[in-house]
């Protein structure tokens, strides 16, 4: 019995570590490459660990025009997207869960149905709309569409339905307006859901490819993934540079992931569909 048990333990860890290796080796290779000089890239046998680690790739990367700015752009877009999405979605969720109005059910159904709408249908007309609004090639074009995030409305509505109406009645007796009760009572009570959504949306905005590819036309407005994409066309084999850039693009999300792990767990079922 003991013998059998230890075999299964060994098997478990062998399999688990094998999958872990698959997941993590690409990261290690990225880190290792980013610490090489460009000469060390092209040697055989390859250097798994750089023999003479150097930060030259990072120096070269930051010397390129547009890199620092693209990091700034990505930050602005991500924070902007989170702010806009959380504010508008939580307000809508409040209306759907706590205010009775005719057509509420239908409207909510339309919201949910729109989750099915894939981004590949949207991106051409979105370009035209943004063009008419004179927003093409501005960061607003990437932020504003986040005013409508159906899954966020859905998730926050679920959350708010669980909050008793008595809170509102009590606040009303104290003379608070609906807006005031919303901001001072409801939002704080939805903290966990808001944090989870913030992470999903920030990740989405930070990593997005299609929309900034279409909507940002000048280098100064590129987000980090788009400038990396452009660099990979320009310096096809300068992998020291490209890996340094990739690593920089991953680091903020790694930090968020490690510090806010518990919020990730509840968000998996809602953030699945692209677009």
């Amino acid at each position: 019995m003991m013998y059998k048990k230890s075999i299964s333990t060994v098997l478990y860890h062998v399999l688990a570590i094998l999958l872990g290796v698959i997941a993590i080796v690409p990261f290690l290779w990225m880190i290792s490459t980013s610490l090489k000089s460009s000469g060390a890239l092209l040697v055989i046998p390859i250097e798994w660990i750089p023999k003479e680690p150097t930060l030259s790739a990072y120096k070269k990367l930051f010397a390129l025009t547009g890199i620092v700015r693209s990091i700034g752009n990505s930050l602005v877009v991500s924070f902007g997207a989170v702010f806009v999405a959380l504010l508008s979605s939580s307000m809508a969720a409040f209306a759907f869960s706590k205010i009775h109005f005719r057509g509420s059910g239908y409207l909510f159904m339309i919201f949910i149905a729109s989750m099915m709408l894939p981004s590949h249908v949207i991106f051409i007309p979105l370009y035209l709309i943004m063009n008419d609004l004179h927003l093409v090639d501005t960061l607003f074009a990437l932020i504003l569409p986040y005013t409508f995030k159906a899954f966020a409305v859905f998730m926050l509505r679920q959350q708010m339905m669980g909050i008793p109406d008595a809170y509102l009645d009590a606040a009303a007796i104290d003379g608070a307006s609906l807006f005031r009760s919303f901001f001072t009572i409801f939002l704080p009570l939805c903290k966990t859901a808001l944090a989870t959504l913030a992470i999903i949306i920030a990740m989405d905005a930070w990593n997005d490819y299609l929309m900034p590819l279409v909507l940002m036309t000048s280098t100064k407005n590129y987000t980090l993934p788009i400038i990396l994409n452009a660099l990979s066309g320009q310096f096809k084999t300068a992998y020291d540079l490209l890996m340094a850039g990739s690593l920089i693009s991953v680091i903020p999300l790694l930090i968020i992931y490690i510090t806010a792990q518990r919020y990730f767990a509840s968000g998996f079922l809602v953030g699945g569909v692209k677009g």
């Binding site: 993590i24 990593n207 999300l253 992931y257 990730f264």
Partner: peptide, 18 residues
């Protein structure tokens, strides 16, 4: 196992290309 999910597709693609 979750680390690759955090990566953007641009970074992930460049890593795999290499």
């Amino acid at each position: 196992y979750y680390l690759p999910v955090l990566t953007s597709w641009v970074a992930g693609s460049l890593i795999w290309k290499w």
